[in-house]
Design a protein around this nucleic acid. Structure first.
Lengths: 308, 308
DNA sequence: CGAATAGTGTCTATGAGACAATATATC
DNA sequence: GATATATTGTCTCATAGACACTATTCG
């Protein structure tokens, strides 16, 4: 390999080079941390089930991790966990560090999904957010202990799509959708409406997102959350592999299916689902115990299949 | 909509807030600008065809736009076009501006594909690159006029995959691939080898790219180029829509098919291809003229189909 | 046995891939 | 007519979706 080595002239040039002559933004990461779990798991694991419905399986829900801001700006509002990129830190390292600080999870699916640098998005100044999506096995995370000024909680996520306008012609298109976002943790309710504008300009598609309404969600994070949810859906629709990142080491096929259903927001037929994911899982000899009905086999990932 | 409005206390807080207490990187965009065209088009359009083979259709090739660096560091090396993000400029705007400056194209498919911020990637200091992929209709671009110190050219792209290691087990996997990249413009030959390491760590996939060899390509741009090519391939493999962004307003189905083939790096059967893309195109009444064989119908995009 | 969930078998429609056949320009 | 490409028809096989059916545990 040919190594790049500097000449004396170059060394001189770089010595004179002044990085600060250009304005520079602060770089932040915001983490959309998702998990799928039932409410009991969200509060405390392994607690007593309600006595009446002991036969019913608990309902799984999509969750997102939010923290309440303890400082200005948006003091008291809820925001995605995140923080600033440290000097000479790779942005992925920043994301991993933030994730660990908030959840004590070291290994998780982590993916950059967007860059939001619109001027004015943060009153403190020019701050570019690198938004990451993280998928957590809900059983693994231990939230950072909250203080008065800094609470972290798993919020239920509900998002509904509404079509506002759809104008399709042979050579042009304009589509506007609205996404109603509702987030809930105990008696705390947050909500937002994010508008998606798709257009065809000179034979090229353009998509824009803007916040139409926002209750108690800090900065432009409502937009980031909607964007992250749409990214997740789109990816799972195309290739379900990443859903496994939401699962623990072993799981039943029904648990896996429910996780798919929650993300895709539609029911799946068990027989077809099982056929589809059959190659990706391997039966273990564990069984679920103590349910009021036929016990399910536990499965684990078949790593070979993930690489075709 | 509830408007976020500041209190006096908050205004005071922000006044004291010192952005400069954290280190900040410079933010750059690097543009992987791809186009598919025949060599004649790359040099000058509409020129005389070679007389012997007037009946043969010209061969299309994948091209990438590179500039020769006129300054240190990597003076004389070839690099992706790019530049720094200006104050209060959205990073997408930076990318659009750069694209326009280099190619005089305003509308093109533009997509962020990666963030590269590894310490040491630029000898000038802490510079985070936001890499964008742009797809251009080759007939549209007019390269910025070159000067002695600043040449821009369309390079032929050839990338081949080589499997180095493949260790698949039930619960773990380690895969190493190498990508041989060769770029050529007239008698200028650039090359690189980029290694891709995939692993399964605690049930989660990790992928890393590193440069194993690099000839005459500046910075870590060999890695960015390979990464961009892989992104393009993956996307087209999943959903061919973006290929249309490489096409002019009207085109023949064979031209479209060739473009797919070049990206996917494999031949397609015409009958099947046509069935697959049938809904996305509309016949026009134009025909190709003056070819030494049956003339092809010209088609245009069917915008309706792009929105399902 | 009834409730509740786990798991399987099969029919059909749709789409991908392979291959053969036909069509139409120029020279 | 020869060359070179354009365009269409059809067979097979794999897969997705719908639906009906069987299995197993607890109480």
């Amino acid at each position: 390999m040919k190594i790049y080595s500097m000449t004396e002239e170059e060394r001189e040039y770089l010595k004179q080079y002044d990085m600060t002559r250009y304005d520079r933004p602060s770089i932040a990461t915001d983490m959309a941390v998702f998990s799928v779990m039932d409410d009991e798991a969200a509060v405390e694991r392994g607690k007593n089930r309600s006595v009446q419905n002991y036969r019913k399986s608990p309902e799984s829900k999509m969750k997102i991790l939010l923290i309440q801001r303890g400082d200005y700006p948006y003091k008291g509002y809820w925001a995605l966990p995140g923080g600033f990129c440290r000097k000479e830190e790779d942005i992925y390292e920043t994301a991993k560090r933030e994730l660990y600080e908030e959840t004590h999870v070291r290994n998780a699916y982590l993916q950059p999904i967007g860059i939001f640098g619109e001027p004015g998005r943060d009153p403190r100044g020019w701050i570019i957010s690198h938004t990451f999506m993280a998928l957590l096995d809900g059983k693994m995370s231990k939230l950072r202990a909250g203080t008065d000024a800094w609470e972290a909680h798993w919020f239920d996520v509900q998002m509904d799509k509404r079509e506002i306008e759809k104008n399709l012609k042979e050579d042009s298109a304009a589509i506007i959708n609205e996404y109603d976002l509702r987030l809930q943790y105990e008696n705390i309710q947050l909500s937002a409406v994010v508008r998606e504008k798709k257009e065809f300009v000179q034979y090229h598609e353009t998509v824009k997102y803007e916040i139409a309404d926002c209750q108690e969600i800090a900065f432009d994070h409502a937009k980031l959350i909607v964007y992250a949810l749409l990214s997740l859906q789109r990816q799972v629709e195309q290739d379900g592999k990443i859903v496994f990142d939401l699962m623990p080491e072993t799981f039943t096929l029904t648990e896996l299916q429910k996780t798919f259903e929650i993300i895709l927001n539609r029911p799946l037929l068990a027989a077809n689902f099982r056929r589809k994911i059959a190659d990706y899982v391997i039966e273990t000899d564990q069984m679920v115990e103590g349910a009021g009905h036929r016990p399910a086999k536990k499965f684990k990932r078949n790593v070979e299949a993930f690489y075709r």
